[in-house]
Design a protein around this nucleic acid. Structure first.
Lengths: 196, 196
DNA sequence: ACCTGAACACCGTTCAAGT
DNA sequence: ACCTGAACACCGTTCAAGT
């Protein structure tokens, strides 16, 4: 049976989830798929593009906008987008690290950030400002989630202090995220009210 | 003449500035210093620790606090800290990428982020909230600067569109940064006024 | 104490040649 | 069109042995 681009992508995600980014090598992926490493280059021009495809896959839920979310107020809509992004990254081992690398290489889709810019603009921000706010929020989400995920890694197989019960995730990680998110929306709100 | 830890560090920074992170290998660094790659492991346990030392060096200016800055209002002080951090990262090729990797590995100093938390607390935020705000701001700075720097890289030896004159840096990069920064301080201000 | 020499166990990527 | 086999040009890290 012949290998398809999608098989390579889902095989890569499977290795990522089970062994992490450090073990996601072209040779290993080839072996898991029953082909030589070189065969993968028929489907993807290089490893970076493969990682970018993983990123787009992880963040696809951000831009599927059900009618309910679109009808909500701009700040609630932004919260939804931000949470979906965080959830998408947390759903896969080293997800935030993969996404950070992909965006640094400018290979991943801009659709998630554009959706955020649209939400800011809908709130009343001029398009230029909405783009800047979206950029800032996007950076925050990526950085915060990467931080959170690297801490999860350390807790899972490292020296975890028994201060509180870390099941799989630090209990305050979500709080940190929500707080930062609130800071953004409050900042935007104060700019909107200053303009009225 | 014998190699010192500091020589390894400054040699690494020199390679980083001239050739970038991709060319900063232990072998190449050894060659530049006139030793074998293995010799470097006498001074640093691994490459990650070396990169973390570079990060600490780049961000050292953030925590040298002249009296003038300490006397300023909390928001002005935070702007100063944030700008110093961005400047420190931009001062070296791939600086933001090195710092991101170091913080993801949890090897770089927390002093810069603590300085920001202190400034937030001085503004009137409860210590727990100040810590969260500092974390969010720190993520934003790292992400935004990495974005900016990766774009500089593309402009310098890539397809640069002649929309405006990109000398070394996109002209709006600083504006993006200041806008995001303002969003944070406005967000905090709105929370402070809500408490009074 | 500090460094060499040499190895170990890998990488991503390319490409003629096969089917 | 899709993949193999094999190579190219590297990596980070370790460690006995030297000085």
């Amino acid at each position: 049976m012949q290998l398809r681009r999608h098989d390579v992508l889902s095989g890569a995600i499977a290795i990522l989830d089970e062994y992490g980014l450090g073990d996601l090598t072209m040779r290993r992926l080839g072996a898991a798929l029953g082909v030589q490493a070189g065969a993968l280059y028929w489907h993807f021009p290089n490893k970076q593009s493969l990682l970018a495809a993983i990123t787009d896959e992880m963040l696809a839920p951000v831009t599927v906008e059900p009618a309910a979310a679109a009808a909500a107020a701009w700040d609630e809509r932004l919260r939804t987008l931000a949470r979906r992004m965080r959830d998408g990254l947390l759903a896969h081992r080293d997800g935030a690290e993969v996404a950070t690398a992909s965006y640094a290489a400018r290979l991943a889709s801009d659709a998630p950030r554009h959706a955020m810019a649209d939400a800011f603009a809908e709130g009343g921000l001029p398009v230029q400002e909405a783009a800047m706010a979206a950029r800032a929020l996007f950076s925050f989400i990526l950085g915060q989630t990467m931080d959170e995920q690297s801490r999860m890694q350390m807790d899972s197989h490292g020296a975890l202090d028994p201060s509180d019960s870390p099941l799989f995730e630090s209990p305050s990680a979500a709080d940190y995220f929500e707080y930062g998110l609130g800071l953004f929306t409050d900042g935007v709100r104060s700019r909107l009210s200053g303009r009225l």
